[in-house]
């Protein structure tokens, strides 16, 4: 089994990991304690394990860990913390967008990437953007409400 040593940044911190060449990014992240990345299907369908790889949302279950070499990774813990939650995190709480919460980390990261690229995203654009992140609890409406509330030009309240 080929062993690799990879270096990357995780939420701004430099990291190194020793891993077998066939390991996925999801496996390597969880093994090093980044359990904020959740596994929902392991086949790239549900979006639960979404992380940002150089800023782009990817299903970490479909990315070989070796591909993270020299790149920048962000998980939901990089978005904000209890002292300084990201506005999306606060909006998800305020709008009741998290029920069981298992899809929430991946959903937040997809939403973050969307609003970074399209700050004035419409509800239809939000719907399209999160179509790769499945949620079984909310019916999506309150998730879309929360993301829409963080878009530029949204009515505050």
């Amino acid at each position: 089994m080929t062993e690799l040593r990879i270096a990357f940044t995780l939420n701004g911190e430099p990291c190194e990991a020793q891993t077998a060449a066939h390991r996925t990014l999801l496996e390597v992240l969880r093994a090093r304690g980044a359990v904020d990345v959740k596994e929902g299907c392991g086949e790239g369908v549900c979006g639960t394990c979404t992380v940002l790889l150089d800023g782009e949302p990817v299903s970490s279950c479909l990315v070989l860990a070796a591909r993270a070499q020299g790149r920048d990774l962000m998980t939901v813990r990089g978005l904000g913390d209890a002292g300084a939650p990201h506005p999306l995190q606060s909006a998800f709480v305020a709008h009741g967008a998290a029920q069981c919460g298992f899809c929430t980390p991946g959903m937040l990261l997809t939403a973050y990437a969307l609003l970074r690229d399209r700050p004035r995203a419409s509800r239809a654009e939000i719907r399209r953007a999160i179509a790769g992140n499945l949620c079984r609890c909310t019916g999506y409406t309150k998730i879309i409400d929360a993301i829409a509330a963080c878009a530029e030009g949204a009515a505050r309240g």
Binding site: Q89, F92, V93, A98, T104
Partner: peptide, 14 residues
Amino acid sequence: PRHDARDKVLARTL
């Protein structure tokens, strides 16, 4: 807002 939702958006829920 639900107290558990705060933990969930911060991925503190184990």
